[in-house]
């Protein structure tokens, strides 16, 4: 007799599927003493110019998503470009002009741009002091040309945040993603986090495999 080929229902979705770990799917978790309002204050003091710096997989893009939502809530108008390692630069970015006083150019992966284009954008965003009011310290809205970037290293803008994931943050991320009866233990998170040297994205990718292995195979196999 042929055994049944498939159960009636699929098993639950893997909580580490890409839909749950892509930037924007989860709020950024700040380390103690830091928060989104503090970051907004810092950016405001720098006339909405600043760079978020951190290594690969440290949460820069996730932070940028959280930040963009707050910028919108503050009545600003972020225009975001996500750059990949393929070196392609969207024509709209090459031609970008700040259309209104509230516009902020947001670039995820600023180091993907050529040095001349980076310099051009940084210089264009730099506020020129008004000749009428040379002593004024705070920019008026009309003078703002916001530019917020992420990169793996400092590239010439005021550094407003450095993403430095810790094991505690990784554990909190995983706790948020798992429902009751989850298959991932704190020791799994610690092992993956250390194996990937603090890269949270790679940690979550590996936890996907661990979760799959525990929902698709007998437990005895897993403990050998």
């Amino acid at each position: 007799m042929t055994p049944p080929l498939a159960p009636t229902e699929f098993p639950p979705t893997n909580p580490f599927s890409s839909r749950f770990i892509r930037p924007g799917a989860r709020p950024f978790i700040f380390p103690a003493g830091q928060s989104l309002p503090l970051l907004l204050d810092t950016l405001r003091k720098h006339a909405w110019r600043g760079e978020i710096v951190g290594r690969h997989g440290s949460g820069k893009s996730t932070l940028l998503h959280s930040l963009q939502a707050s910028l919108l809530e503050a009545g600003l108008e972020p225009t975001c470009f996500v750059l990949r390692a393929d070196g392609k630069v969207p024509p709209a970015l090459r031609r970008f002009q700040w259309p209104t006083a509230a516009s902020i150019l947001v670039i995820d992966g600023f180091e993907q741009l050529s040095w001349p284009l980076r310099r051009k954008l940084i210089q264009a965003s730099r506020r020129e002091p008004s000749r009428r009011e040379p002593s004024r310290r705070e920019p008026s809205r009309g003078e703002q040309r916001g530019l917020i970037t992420t990169s793996h290293r400092g590239l010439g803008l005021p550094r407003v945040f450095t993403t430095q994931p810790t094991l505690e943050i990784a554990q909190r991320v995983v706790d948020q993603m798992q429902a009751a009866g989850a298959h991932i233990e704190p020791s799994d998170v610690a092992r993956c986090f250390h194996r990937h040297e603090g890269d949270i994205r790679e940690t979550l990718f590996e936890l996907y495999d661990v979760h799959q292995s525990r929902t698709h195979a007998p437990q005895a196999v897993l403990t050998t």
């Binding site: 092992r191 661990v210 292995s213 196999v221 897993l222």
Partner: peptide, 8 residues
């Protein structure tokens, strides 16, 4: 099993 599981 992925390496992470085997090395646990």
């Amino acid at each position: 099993s992925p390496a992470s599981v085997l090395s646990s």
